[in-house]
Design a protein around this nucleic acid. Structure first.
Length: 351
DNA sequence: CATTGATA
DNA sequence: TATCAATGG
């Protein structure tokens, strides 16, 4: 979910060519990416890819092939995994859990009635990202020689930190929260095919990677990051999911620009008093001063462990040997070239 | 979502 | 060689 800044961001976002990212590192919110794979990589009837034991493998397919393709484009992905969520996220997590439960019930019903459309819709809604999936994704990436960072708390916060400290050129996620966490650059729709099907119909639309620069956003609206966070709180974040009733991005922007911050706006009677009970300062702190860690290793590509990749994908999850072997070949070749491109971009010399 | 294979 | 539906696990 995350904060819905679409209406504000649309003013300054721009398309970005994958070629512009050549030789650059990008920190990727792993949960965000994996979840995307789990919902998107499915058969027409909504069934995800599964191994012979019925375990879902859509995420492994997505990670394996997309990572290789990114590397072939010269982009070096750094996957950042979530740690322990902030206490204030409990309500949002509970809300999501309930939605999943409802979706599972509706899915069972759709199964009985054999409604293909409903079946697909609810099986996507019922998608869960388990710990096992995250751990196995991490293992696969490590076997591929791709840098993995374990965040102490929110992965998105860590990915933003890596970007703001220059470890990565940009942070990739579908959520705008990255901007509140301080990522200088956010890339949305970091995909290769550029095709995505619309939720309802079987229509495909062109989806191109887009770049949003924090500085452009703040300049455009004449606000600080602190004020952007206040705007987020009014709209609603994972830590106050409902936001303030009746206040969307435009109103929130107007109010914060006019009064400077939430407290002043409440004081002047522009916002209801109950907002002050929302742990505003704690939410601000989550975005402005989140728990993050310096990456342990070098964030450089390593030699792929061919045997380990094959063990995970072929032996344990029934991937086609031909496809995996071919993928590993591409991976090795692209890895070497990407390293070269990284050296040329000069980004490495900072460290 | 990404790749493959059929089609022209 | 380009396009698109089918397939992947």
């Amino acid at each position: 979910m995350g904060v819905d800044l679409a209406d504000l961001v649309k003013e300054i976002k721009r398309e970005v060519q994958l070629s512009e990212l050549k030789g650059k590192k990008v920190s990727i919110d792993a949960y965000n990416a994996i979840y995307q794979f789990l919902t998107a990589i499915r058969q027409p009837d909504g069934t995800p890819l599964m191994d012979s034991q019925g375990r879902v493998t859509s995420h492994l397919s997505g990670i394996f092939y997309r990572t290789i393709s990114l590397l072939e484009e010269g982009v070096i992905p750094i996957y950042v995994f979530d740690g322990k969520p902030p206490e204030l996220k409990a309500q949002e997590l509970e809300r999501r859990r309930k939605i999943k439960e409802e979706a599972e019930k509706k899915l069972e019903k759709a199964k009985e009635e054999g409604e293909t459309k409903e079946l697909k819709k609810y099986s996507q809604m019922a998608t869960r990202l388990t710990n096992d999936m995250a751990e196995e994704s991490k293992k696969l990436l490590e076997a591929m020689g791709i840098p993995v960072v374990q965040a102490p708390s929110e992965g998105e916060a860590e990915a933003a930190y890596l970007c703001s400290q220059g470890y990565t050129w940009a942070a990739a996620s579908q959520d705008y929260d990255s901007l509140l966490f301080g990522a200088n650059k956010l890339i949305r729709n970091l995909t290769l095919t550029g095709k995505r099907k619309l939720p309802k119909k079987d229509v495909y639309v062109e989806i191109k990677p887009e770049l949003i620069e924090l500085e452009d956003l703040l300049k455009k609206f004449g606000i600080t990051r602190e004020q952007l966070v206040d705007i987020g709180i009014l709209i609603g974040t994972d830590y106050d999911p409902d936001g303030i009733k009746g206040i969307g991005p435009v109103t929130a922007l107007r109010i914060i620009k006019k009064y400077g911050n939430i407290e002043k706006a409440v004081e002047k009677g522009e916002l209801p008093k109950y907002i002050l009970d929302l742990n505003i300062n704690e939410i601000r702190s989550i975005f402005l001063n989140p728990p993050v860690v310096k990456p342990e290793g070098s964030l450089d590509l390593k030699e792929p462990n061919e045997e380990e990749i094959k063990k995970i994908l072929i032996d344990e999850h029934n991937f086609s040997e031909d496809r995996v072997t071919n993928g590993i070949e591409r991976l090795i070749k692209a890895g070497k070239e990407a390293k070269g491109a990284s050296r040329q971009s000069g980004l490495d010399q900072w460290f």
